[in-house]
């Protein structure tokens, strides 16, 4: 039995609306930037998933239409597994999750001065998530591994601060939330959501 869950898209819609409104009222030269970061992520696969805290890389490329609004595309990679092997009366088992996600969204920023800015970003998370199960039967009978993957669309929301070292080189520190809903909902009676709360630090360069 499972409960079908639906994510709320209201915050994302509001953010996109605000950013697009800002964009439509501005006209300026475009600026391209590239940034990479590492985040400490705490994934959650639902009750009793007990997934490990993990380090996850992210790359984002952006095009700033105005000094305050940018469109972005990014890649995010997640690998985590249960923090320990579990066992019940059936078997011993360990589940790992690998997710390769494309980020498509907008960033809006508020410049405090020419060195420091606060920003918010959000958008669609195009996830491709694989679960792998390793199951053993106390060496009484042979165990094995199986895996399967699914794709879908979720969302991400993030907020952070940018501190410029030079006019082009800057540091980015942020907090984010990633939401992937109903993974395997088409193939399973037991779909799951995989969410993440993460904080990261990275470097960016404006061209």
């Amino acid at each position: 039995m499972y409960l079908k869950r639906r994510s709320s898209t209201l915050p994302l819609t509001l953010l996109l609306t605000a950013l697009l409104t800002g964009l439509s009222h501005q006209a300026a030269a475009t600026e391209f930037y590239l940034q990479g970061s590492l985040a400490l992520s705490q994934p959650d696969g639902g009750s009793d998933s007990d997934l490990e805290l993990t380090t996850s890389p992210r790359i984002i490329a952006g095009l700033a239409f105005t000094p305050n609004v940018s469109a972005e595309v990014g890649f995010y990679y997640l690998y985590t597994e249960q923090d320990s092997e579990k066992e019940d009366v059936v078997s011993q088992y360990l589940v790992s999750i690998t997710s390769k996600d494309i980020l498509l969204g907008l960033k809006g920023q508020f410049n405090i001065n020419n060195r420091i800015a606060f920003y918010g970003r959000g958008g669609m998370l195009l996830w491709n998530t694989e679960l792998e199960l390793e199951e053993n039967f106390w060496d009484i009978i042979p165990g094995g591994k199986v895996s399967d993957d699914d794709s879908g669309v979720g969302y991400y929301l993030s907020g952070g601060i940018i501190i410029h070292f030079t006019e082009r080189l800057y540091m980015d520190a942020y907090l984010s939330h990633h939401q992937r809903n109903d993974i395997f909902k088409d193939d399973s009676n037991y779909p799951i959501d995989v969410t993440e709360t993460l904080g990261g630090v990275g470097l960016g360069f404006s061209f």
């Binding site: 088992y93 679960l131 199960l133 094995g144 895996s147 395997f184 193939d187 399973s188 037991y190 779909p191």
Partner: peptide
Amino acid sequence: RWYPIDILNV
């Protein structure tokens, strides 16, 4: 269990 047991099952 917490994961899709009808897909991942040894």
